[in-house]
Amino acid sequence: MPLSRIYTATSASRRRRKALTYSKGESVSGPSFTYGKFNFDYSINFQGLKLGFEDKNGMYHYKRNIVGWKHESNIASQTGIFYLQPIEPLNLPDNVTDFIEIQFKEITIEPNGKAVVFLTMPIEIGVFLEAKNGERNLLDIVTFCHPKFSLYGAASRGVITRFYESEVYSMPPAVDNYKEGLLRLEIENDTDEWTTVGRVILYQKGLILYYDETTVCACAKMIVRSHDVADVVGIAQPIREGMTESIQVFESRKTTPFCNIEGALLDSTFTMDMGMR
């Protein structure tokens, strides 16, 4: 996959975010991407992304172009239905890792205290096909985000992470729903000492995305066990009612050597045992 294409797709300038409430009524300035279920006659021309299906002698031809990064495919389908869904940002430019790392300005939490913050995270857009029997197939993935990776822990026993920097918000900020999603993070300090948290690492399996007309979101909980150990678990819950659960593209990737973090990964929980700052 051409990396340079992905870089250029991310060149759009960042807007200043303004805080909004949890309620759906508050509008967001700027265009919103429409996720959902569509027929093949639906096409997209949005912020440099062109995507659509053409009927060519009984066979559909899928075409996508995002700032010069193209993908084409022939499809034999009777249903003619496809989905556009926000998916976890772990597929482009390649299946490098299963972990997302979000770094933010440090938060100091009192002993046995709790904090609920909102962070932004990158998202990718998945194009899924649906068959008559309901079987779905991932056709294509695009992104408006610049991919960047990092290492959590030491090279010998750490994990590669999809890296992202975020501001800390006490209320959900307005974001471009085609580029970023919101992560509602509940941090629980389970110790009798003050603790400082500056990053969170989420395992792919625990990241369940939800969307509506304006927002893409996920929820997670971080339980601080000691001054440098915390458990992070994804929560299957949207930030407000009426949001739709996105299709999860979970697949075990061989590139992530789970043996290096033996004991640290329990189903969808990731134990950050190499620091939280």
Binding site: L3, I6, P93, H146, K148, F149, S150, I160, F163
Partner: peptide, 8 residues
């Protein structure tokens, strides 16, 4: 700018 040049 390069994705595979690790941040950390």
């Amino acid at each position: 700018e390069h994705p595979y040049a690790l941040k950390n």
